[in-house]
Design a protein around this nucleic acid. Structure first.
Lengths: 190, 190
DNA sequence: GTCTATACGATGATAGAC
DNA sequence: GTCTATCATCGTATAGAC
């Protein structure tokens, strides 16, 4: 239940974002959203056309937020390797998983181009930013010249997304951290 | 709808396995299972205590099947690197995702120790088999002695699981293959 | 073993009062 | 803008006949 100056529409979107993260699209009911947002049926259908419309607003905000987080670390200080390390090691609530990546396991999201678009765009954008860093690192001699920047970027993002899967399977963040350490060991210059 | 000599109980389990893969636990209803299995309510509640019980049987079979598939490639012919490559490049229906990894995004599966156990065991087992191969490769000088076999194994499994996420986000297997190529480039001996 | 009947709460949405 | 009916359908399960 939210209170601080948020509009009803914003509270609905925030409640939906949380529930999509926890339970996915199929597992998220309007009823649960309304309860968490402290709103009535009428409010929701006044501000949004229905569940897919509200979910779209929520997914867009979540995708934006993830991208902003990633951009912050990736354009931070340090060498390309150090910035990639910062991205991989940044604080995460590993067992909650990725609020964006999670949606790719939702058949109703993947089947709907409008719902999938923000997910696709956010992940593609992060891949591009990382690929740019890898290119930079290659130019500086920090990474081997033979590496394909796009492939390494895909590997880095996949390691994070897959790390969540391993962690949730075992009920512990250990496997996530292990995968990250393994990747950094292979990427480390010298 | 199945027909070939399968028992009703088996048809129910197979239908459940398919639906869990496609739609996850929350997205799979007894009704849909019955329809796909060509069975009535009575049959299901005769053979199983309810949805969680049937899902458990289905998850166990799927976990076993995945493990068997992985074991086959990992204990196949070739050097450690070649067997890891065979595992990473083995034919997959990438856009369908991993029938086991997928379940980790299901809150009701993760919250239930009995349902999560087979998922955890299958993934842990694959990690161990790969870690053994990495150790072997280190002993043969194929991999750098400084690498941690457990970390590299976590990285390899995470790359596969994360590759599915990237592929489903973009609606194309390309990102999966890119991540795999990136990983193989970093692991390649010489 | 399998079927039909029945039950009750949840889902996703509409209508209309205030 | 928000609230309270109201609705048809689905989800999950039980009971009891055959």
């Amino acid at each position: 239940m939210y209170s601080r100056g948020m509009s009803t529409a914003d509270r609905l979107v925030e409640a939906t974002r949380e529930l999509l993260w926890e339970r996915g699209y199929v597992g998220t009911s309007p009823r649960a959203i309304l309860e968490r947002a402290g709103a009535g049926q009428g409010s929701m259908y006044h501000h949004f056309r229905g569940k897919p419309d509200l979910a779209l607003a929520a997914i867009r905000r979540t995708a934006e937020a993830l991208l902003a987080q990633a951009d912050e670390v990736l354009s931070g200080p340090g060498s390309p390797y150090e910035r990639i390390e910062a991205y991989l090691r940044r604080e995460r609530d590993v067992l909650r998983g990725c609020p964006v990546g999670r949606l790719t396991m939702d058949p109703d999201v993947v089947a709907d181009d409008a719902l999938r678009a923000p997910v696709d765009a956010a992940i593609a954008r992060i891949r591009e930013r990382i690929a740019g860093l890898v290119e930079e690192g290659k130019a500086q001699g920090q990474f081997a010249a033979g590496l394909d920047a796009g492939e390494i970027a895909a590997l880095i993002v996949a390691t994070v997304q897959g790390g969540y899967v391993l962690a949730r399977a075992s009920g512990s963040p250990e496997a996530f951290d292990a995968g990250v350490r393994g990747l950094l060991a292979l990427l480390r210059p010298e």
